[in-house]
Design a protein around this nucleic acid. Sequence first.
DNA 1: TGTACATCAGTGAACGCGCGTTCACTGATGTAC
DNA 2: TGTACATCAGTGAACGCGCGTTCACTGATGTAC
Lengths: 210, 210
Amino acid sequence: MTEETGQRVRSGYHHGGLREALLLAAEQELIEKGIEGFTLRGVAKRAGVSHAAPAHHFRDTSDLLTALAAVAATRFRDTMKQRQAKSPGDARSQFIASGQGYIEFALDNPALFGLMFGSRRPDFSSEEFSRPSFESFMVLVKDVADLRGDNALDHVEGRADILTAWSLVHGLANLLIAGRLRFLEADLKADRDGTILRALERVVPGDRRG
Amino acid sequence: MTEETGQRVRSGYHHGGLREALLLAAEQELIEKGIEGFTLRGVAKRAGVSHAAPAHHFRDTSDLLTALAAVAATRFRDTMKQRQAKSPGDARSQFIASGQGYIEFALDNPALFGLMFGSRRPDFSSEEFSRPSFESFMVLVKDVADLRGDNALDHVEGRADILTAWSLVHGLANLLIAGRLRFLEADLKADRDGTILRALERVVPGDRRG
DNA sequence: TGTACATCAGTGAACGCGCGTTCACTGATGTAC
DNA sequence: TGTACATCAGTGAACGCGCGTTCACTGATGTAC
């Protein structure tokens, strides 16, 4: 009996691609059990191996969660960049697009989003996790800088623009995931992107509105 | 041996105020262990009673966490209202004050804030938890309505103003708690309230800025 | 191409631990008379 | 004021469970010759 797992093949005894399979299983475990109910044994069972097998690939639970957070951060960054690539245009539309991408990722991957931003279990000093996280941040910095026409990080007002935009998308994502926006339910159902857009428009750096 | 616990007194065998003592112990447990490491036995030990004692006051762990979330939501609402009372003025300054109160509570009570907004363990349908939560929401709705001069909930743009303000303070609070604002560290250290203020100013409904 | 052998990546039994829950109990308190 | 008794709010031992971790093992793979 052989079965496909990525590029490799299971050959009875040896799995062939257990590391990747464990990451997939961990994501599923996180989705179904939440970070509070996440166990290594559960992940192993999901991947179809004995509960001692993961030790050959991950030192402990935290090590596995760090690797999963790295996968998440990479997907997160790519979601934002892809959303920008899909709607090229001026600095304003790029700003809006990355914000929509931020929220799109959070809604499509609430468990991974919570792992990255709401848990202390992954190791934040890990290079593979922190690098894509930093690159996501730099997408936002660039958007704000392009709108302002200066290096936003160098000025108090530029940093305030960055903070405002980041806080808005982050809070919006969290409130949506937590299901706290019942007062907006009808708007979201009618036009989700448009509803999010109305909020994003209010924090475009330098914009005037009325 | 007697010892003060609220209004009542421990008399050797009977505690005298165990329910309140358990809530205090649960808050401490949550602060030190996080929601992931929160256990009923830990709470009982902290309160100085046997691990079977809490059963006389709380059905199970979820019941205790719901009661704690109710305490948190009440304190949260009061923090916002007190901050507004301390700085009376026009609608704009009331809006800013409640936002500052929102973030003040989150920074002073990160564990309780996480319990209210980031966990699924408390029972959200509980009246004692949902009522003060709703009242907090209505503080924000009133602030926006006063600034707009209409019933904000009745219009798409009003709801977008509410969403924007709530998302901003909520995201800012979460990012501060998670320690993700290292790029702002110097600003926050120099003038925390002022730094937060600069973000809040950007989402005052109807405001123009440049 | 075949054989010997080292290494790798699994298995499954066993361990000690802390958890929530149950249960018979007991000490303290409140009430009826 | 005293006594009897019901009720309340604790104790502590016991339970079964799932957890992470360890360990001797074994099957599969890769390499040297």
